[in-house]
Structure formats: C-alpha cells, structure tokens
Design a protein around this nucleic acid. Structure first.
Lengths: 195, 195
DNA sequence: GTCTATACAATGATAGAC
DNA sequence: GTCTATCATTGTATAGAC
C-alpha cells in the first residue's frame, strides 16, 4: 500500500538545494523540484507561496519570536538587554546545522532574486523588532537604532558562525557579535577611531 | 508626421502610478500600462528590467553616488562626516517633489512585492556605503554600524520630508535626522533612557 | 537606434476529480 | 491532500519595421 512519504516541505527543501547547487536557481524549474521530490508543481505551490520561499521556510517565525522575546524580557531590562533576548530567541529556534546553512548562504549569494527575498526578511525582522521595542521603551529615535544594532549583530554573528568550524553555538556567536558591536559603537561615538 | 512622444520612461512612470493607484499594483498588467502610455509590452520590458522597477527608476544611481561621496570626502573627515556627505549626495540627486514621492510611498506600502524591492534597494545602499566606508576607515565593525546609521537617517529623514508640508529641502531633512540619530545613540549608550 | 509583432517558457492561480 | 488540466501574467528571444 503506497503511503505518502512524510515531511514534504523538508523533502522539497533538500531537493531544491541539490538542484539549485547543480544547475543554479534560475535554471531550475519548480516542476523539476516537485517531480524529483515525488510531488507535483501544484502541491509545491500549496506548500510554499512561491519558489523562493522554499529556501526561507521557518524564517517567518523569527519575526514573532523576536517580538515576543522583547515583550517577555524582565522588568527593568535595558534596551540592549531586550535586543539580546530577541536575537537569542531567534537563534534558539534555528535548527539547521553548519553545512546546510552554508549551502543556503551560497545559493543566496549567487542569485539576485534570492538576495532580494533575504533583504525583505531582514527588513521584516528589523521592523518587528523596532515595533516591539517601541512598545516597551517608547517611540523615540533610539528604538530604530537599537533594532538596527540587533539585526546587524544577528546577521553578522550568523555569518561568523557559518564561516567558523568550531563548535561554538549560534547563540553564542550572535551574542558575542552584539557585545562587540556595542563596544564598536562606543568607540565610534567617543571619536577615536574612524576619525 | 507622427513623431514619437518624448520621455517614454517618464510617461510609463506616470501611467503606472495612475493605474496602480486606481486598481492596485497586482491588478494592473504590464500590457495595460504600456498601452495607455502609447507603447507596447515589448518596449516596456526593453526600458525596464521588470514591472517593479518602473517605480524605482533612478534609485540604482544612489548606490554609486553614496560610494563616490565617501571617497571624495575631505581628508581627515570623521566617519559621521563621510556618512553625511554620502546621504547629502543621495538627496541632492532626488528630483521628484513631495506629491509624487508621496504617491509612490503609498503604493509601496500597499504592496508586499514593492516592499520587497524597496528593502532590496535599501540593503544595496547599505552595502555600498559600508564598502566605501571600509575603503576609507578599515574593515572593523564600526563601518557596518555607521552604514546602518546613515541609511536609517536617510530613510527616516525621507519619510519625515514626505510627511511634512513645509518647504524644508530633502537634504536638510535627512541631515537633521542624522544629527538627531547621533544624539539618540549617545543617549542610548550613556545608559539613561531605554534603560 | 527606437519601436513593434510574434512566439515562447516559467511562475503562480484556480477548479474539479480521486 | 494530492493530482490533472487549464489559464493569465511576467519576462525573454528573435526577427523585422520605421
């Protein structure tokens, strides 16, 4: 009795990574991906809103996780502490390992269409983080800047985690990045470097 | 003797704004825009790489303007002075007035597809600015943060210019925004607000 | 050198059968 | 839930008209 293979989204993701890596993103059709994963194009588009989203599945959650973490941060938390809570919540939700994250990063770097989607995700996170921070700390200028700081730490920390071969956790990597961004900012404003 | 109407790109832009405002971005086809502008779909796609880009024409220049301004900033300029030069160069190149800028902003706000393109433009500017700053000040963490600061000042200043009805120039608006971002950052790091 | 006609491939939507 | 089938639209390619 032929039963459906489980986890169609995961299967489509793995298949897509394979085909994109072989032929490039543009040269691979959605029909090809679906077929190799044992499905049809229609099913693929029921499971994902569009072709790009196959590689970005899960990232939509980050927006809510970040906002929720800011709300849940303890009373009296500083702005940077709330940001740290937000980006830790995002990294804690990250399941993929070094190698598949690295593969996806390579694919994005090779395709303008995927870069555009990545930029959109990043800006969605920044906006959500800013809104959540505004809910706690008010609507001043600083919350946008704080959000930028957090998002930069998250993405730069992610890159450094991907590049490294040690067994430092992703959370550790982004929190270290956040700390060094804060230090760099202080130095910057005190006027000594980048003089 | 029927001669070609001049400025096909501008005509397509105005027609697109009309139709998008009436029917929405998605409900308007490229054939419709082209026809109403007295052209064909083929010509539209010769003049613009894709449908979204009709509304973003000119923005590709900003990347080069920003980078060039950083390179051209006087010897001994501080990081923030270089950023100020970059965003002034971008605003000086802006030709459209309040009303059409406002219309475009409204259209973008109403369409996820256009928001995605806008996020991509913003991130392209941020990357170019960061690279140019790295060329002058080195590759440290601070250049990414400086670029974020400049880009935020540019976009928030732009929004405030669009919202206002005074005759303050766009350049004035973004430079004021930059100054108040710097002040907010100092306050933020000194630990008093958003505590 | 700018515009057009035609044909075409791919994305993504939709409706109905199993 | 998945499939077949069909469809509109975007965007490309080519060859030709003014």
């Amino acid at each position: 009795m032929a039963r459906w293979e489980p986890d169609p989204r995961g299967r489509l993701l793995r298949t897509a990574i394979e085909l994109f890596s072989d032929q490039g993103y543009e040269a691979t059709t959605t029909a090809q991906i679906a077929e190799r994963a044992g499905l049809t194009k229609t099913t693929l588009f029921r499971l994902f809103p569009d072709k790009r989203e196959i590689l970005f599945q899960g990232q939509s959650l980050l927006v809510d996780l970040a906002a929720e973490a800011v709300r849940a941060a303890p009373d009296g938390s500083s702005g940077t502490a709330a940001v740290a809570a937000a980006i830790s919540a995002m990294t804690d939700a990250h399941v993929a390992g070094h190698s598949s994250s690295r593969q996806i990063a390579r694919l994005i770097a090779a395709s303008p269409e995927l870069q555009e989607r990545a930029a959109f995700k990043r800006s969605s996170i920044a906006q959500a983080l800013q809104a959540a921070l505004a809910g706690r700390f008010g609507e001043g200028h600083h919350v946008g800047l704080l959000a930028d700081l957090g998002v930069r730490a998250y993405y730069d920390g992610f890159d450094s985690w991907i590049a490294a071969d040690d067994d430092r956790s992703l959370t550790t990597a982004v929190l270290e990045e956040l700390a060094s961004c804060e230090a760099a900012l202080r130095e910057l404003l005190s006027g000594s470097p980048a003089r």
